[in-house]
């Protein structure tokens, strides 16, 4: 008898220990701690100024103070990204946010997330897969950006509009989208592309500068430079400066850049350039809003983005929406 009771006591003790242990391990997964578990798979901040702002926004929004328990993996290697995503699925996160390096190869991962009941939200970059494999995608519509910018060029009412097109990395989503509207406008006879160049895979300032220099050397007459990012617009303007061609608000050549770098916005503000088109890296706030409201949209959602000109730019826009370092009011960047 005595032996039996002691045995029972031991068993009870073990059960008690195990159950408390299970309670402790089980807790964070449920809502006892009240934090929403989020796994973020992103690209590394050193990729670009855009990504820098993007990662920063993710860090700020998905913080414990805002009620999130977030884990982040920032890598430019697609297989590492997939491995990280699978890890988060095993961990049992509530939401999985992905900005994929490659648009393909994600099907299995997305399906297993779906099976586990995890809501997948893509941001910034789309994935080539069936829409049913993810909840929603919050993207920048490059074609929309190109259309806004081209509409601005046409609204200048220059007769004729002779445009130098400086593309980004050929074949990239941004290049295709931002070129589309311009090429269409040329087809419709609304403007003429007198020089068509690229800054290459690094969207290089120097290459862009050479494109404009070649156009000047060939005595091509142009009055708009449409550079698909700010660095390339900067290179283009350097070429104009060296050749003594006026540009900006009161100048001959109108300059438009993309991406909303703060230095570019200050240049627009100073009338050194003419316009800039936003490419918003701060999807985090919008996604958080969706999660907190419990009303998740489905399918692809495009962000609304701004185009600023010398007339519409304000300090507030530069503060709130600009990316990278601010040179300070009144300063221009050559």
């Amino acid at each position: 008898m005595k032996k039996n009771t002691s045995k029972i006591m031991v068993i009870l003790a073990i059960i008690a220990m195990v159950s408390t242990f299970m309670v402790f391990t089980g807790c964070p997964g449920d809502d006892a701690a009240g934090l929403i578990k989020v796994g973020i798979v992103n690209l590394p901040p050193e990729e670009s100024g855009y990504r820098q702002a993007n990662v920063e926004a993710m860090n700020n929004v998905f913080s414990t103070a805002n009620g999130y328990e977030a884990k982040q993996t920032n890598t430019g290697d697609n297989s590492e990204q997939i491995a990280a995503a699978k890890g988060y699925i095993r961990d049992g996160v509530d939401y999985l946010l992905i900005s994929a390096q490659n648009a393909s190869g994600w099907d299995d991962t997305l399906k297993s997330a779906k099976d586990a009941g995890i809501k997948v939200i893509l941001f910034d970059r789309p994935i080539d897969t069936d829409v049913s494999n993810y909840q929603a995608a919050l993207l920048s519509d490059m074609a929309y950006e190109g259309k806004m910018a081209t509409d601005w060029v046409l609204s200048l009412g220059l007769k004729p509009t002779n445009l130098v097109l400086i593309r980004g990395a050929m074949g990239s989503g941004a290049e295709i989208g931002r070129s589309a509207a311009v090429l269409e406008a040329q087809k419709a006879g609304k403007l003429k592309i007198v020089a068509d160049g690229t800054g290459g895979d690094s969207w290089s300032l120097e290459e862009a500068r050479k494109v404009v220099e070649a156009a000047i050397a060939a005595k091509k007459d142009f009055n708009v430079i449409y550079a698909q990012n700010d660095g390339m617009a900067q290179g283009a303007v350097q070429a104009l400066e060296a050749a003594g061609i006026t540009h900006g608000k009161d100048g001959k050549v109108k300059i438009i850049g993309f991406d909303f770098n703060r230095f570019a916005l200050r240049n627009v503000q100073a009338g050194y350039w003419d316009a800039n088109m936003q490419c918003n890296p701060r999807q985090a706030a919008e996604i958080s809003k969706w999660i907190k409201s419990g009303k998740l949209p489905s399918g692809i959602i495009y962000q609304e983005e701004l185009l600023v000109t010398t007339d519409t730019i304000t300090d507030e826009i530069i503060d709130t929406w600009g990316i990278n370092a601010d040179p300070g009011k009144g300063k221009i960047t050559r």
Binding site: F263, G271, P327, K331, I332, T333
Partner: peptide, 11 residues
Amino acid sequence: KLSPLLDNPIS
């Protein structure tokens, strides 16, 4: 991390 700028001329 913010691609800082060198000193530049006033507009």
